[in-house]
Amino acid sequence: MKIVVTADTHLPKKSRGLPEELRIDLLKSDLIIHAGDFQTIEIYQQLKDFGELIAVAGNVDHPDLKELLPQKMIIEKKGLKIGLVHGDGAGKTTEKRALETFQHDDVGVIIFGHSHIPFSRYQNGIFLFNPGSPTDKRKLPYFSHGILTIGDSWKIEHKFYV
């Protein structure tokens, strides 16, 4: 199972559209996970056109999206429990807020966004993953998204591009 992991697309504000590198992976994916900040419901619909989409709302999403999408969710794919949250809030780092969101839940992976900074690290026995942003790299030299592959085991990695 190939899952494209993305967040912080911020369209149409930050770009004219989804980058080709992301589109190619979306076409080959079995599932799309988006950790919030689509910005508009049109971008949410556009991503749904590529296939099954699981998503949470982000802090800059349109009110229609905030009504449609939860702030937090847990999914299970092939035995892997995945927590999904945007990660915005006051105080602490984004990854600490994401970890605290699921402190009473049984998850193996937490996917979050908000900071636009790619992040992948085990913390307290849970793998934390921020895909970065495919459209708003801020001061980073590259755009990014993630690929989660689940078979007999699982791996998640970043895909970087300019």
Rank of each mutant, 00 (worst) to 15 (best):
T6I: 15
N124T: 06
V109L: 15
L53N: 10
A55G: 01
F143E: 08
D152S: 14
H116T: 15
D25A: 12
E100A: 10
L26Q: 12
D106L: 08
L27I: 01
K66P: 06
L31F: 09
K92Q: 02
K78P: 00
G91T: 06
I43W: 14
H104Y: 06
L53E: 07
D49V: 05
L148R: 08
K96Y: 08
V56W: 01
F143H: 15
L47P: 05
I32Y: 13
F119C: 05
L84Y: 05
S144A: 15
V162T: 00
G58Q: 06
P118C: 01
H86N: 12
I156V: 11
I54P: 14
K92I: 00
F143A: 02
V4W: 12
Q39V: 09
K139E: 10
L26A: 08
I24A: 11
Y44S: 03
I82G: 00
Y44G: 02
L99A: 13
L80K: 03
Q46S: 02
G132H: 01
V4P: 14
P118G: 03
T9A: 15
L22P: 06
L148S: 09
K92W: 07
I3D: 13
Y44H: 12
T101S: 15
K13Q: 15
S29R: 00
G36M: 10
V4T: 15
I150Y: 03
S153W: 09
V85L: 06
S15T: 07
V85G: 08
H158I: 12
K72E: 10
L22W: 09
D37P: 07
W154P: 00
S153V: 04
F38L: 01
L69D: 01
H104V: 02
R138T: 06
I117G: 09
A98K: 11
T6G: 14
Q103P: 02
I82D: 01
E95D: 10
L11K: 12
A98F: 14
H158K: 04
E20C: 02
V107A: 06
A90R: 11
Q103K: 14
T40V: 14
I126H: 11
K92Y: 06
L27K: 10
K48Q: 15
R23H: 02
Q123K: 14
D64H: 04
S133W: 07
L80C: 01
I43Q: 00
K139D: 08
E100Y: 11
E76H: 02
D88Q: 08
G89V: 04
I24K: 15
Q45T: 08
L18R: 04
E20D: 04
Q123V: 07
E52M: 06
G113F: 10
L128V: 03
F127A: 04
F102T: 04
E20R: 15
D136A: 13
Q46Y: 02
